[in-house]
Design a protein around this nucleic acid. Structure first.
Lengths: 124, 124
DNA sequence: CAGAATCCTTTGCGATACTG
DNA sequence: CAGTATCGCAAAGGATTCTG
């Protein structure tokens, strides 16, 4: 099967797709991936650039991304220790569709805000 | 700005994108959108096709999608009442990038599973 | 049929403190 | 610097019951 057809998508496979999308959909994952597109970054740099992420969520999300083979952890044993993160090849291949989605989001932000306002006005 | 550049993405806009992506990333939203691509569906039909969604989450997610102007609610006043849901034009425009992402997910499921297995084996 | 409302459990996640 | 560990709150979400 090359094209998604939810009607013929088996339960098992469907469940897997959901799982993957739930990772991808996670806002921290998306932000980390997007942040790593240009170049690898250190833990502290990621923390600084994604300003409102807690170091707990950064560590957790990075570990999940690493577990999924999307991000690679590069340890330089030194004092103080240095750890860089970079996208794997698979991570980069994911960046494309993610950017497409981000693109859509940016293009439709205003219309969504309008829709929200209209909806809220109607149900007041 | 036409291309996403996280480095030049202002905080305000960045925050909005995050908000949109958090909707889009929501697994129930994604499933509903994908399910509605081909044709409009009734509440009960959606509930049946997305087998493990609770009616609570279905109602809540549909209302959010409607609020965002992605899904339209079509009420046929009859007894028993009939309510159909269909994608708006904006909803359809979102379906494209979402399917692209789903496509990526399907294509990389196996490699992700392998990566998971490798990671778990390494950290045992 | 299509939901709203209530209850109650689980999970997510931030804050804080501690380590190699 | 780059994390881990623990705590505690807030939000998510399932099960169930009720209604136009």
């Amino acid at each position: 099967m090359d094209v998604i057809d939810p009607l013929t998508l088996g339960d098992e496979r469907c469940h897997k797709v959901k799982r993957v999308l739930s990772h991808v959909g996670d806002k921290w994952s998306v932000l980390i991936i997007v942040t790593l597109i240009r170049e690898q970054k250190r833990f502290s740099a990621l923390k600084r650039e994604i300003n409102d992420i807690s170091q707990r969520m950064l560590a957790l999300t990075l570990r999940n991304l690493e577990r999924d083979g999307l991000v690679e952890r590069i340890v330089t044993p030194s004092i103080p220790p240095r750890v860089d993160y970079r996208l794997t090849e698979m991570g980069h291949s994911l960046a494309d569709p993610v950017l497409t989605l981000g693109q859509w989001a940016i293009e439709h932000l205003d219309r969504i805000d309008e829709a929200n306002a209209r909806y809220d006005a109607g149900n007041r």
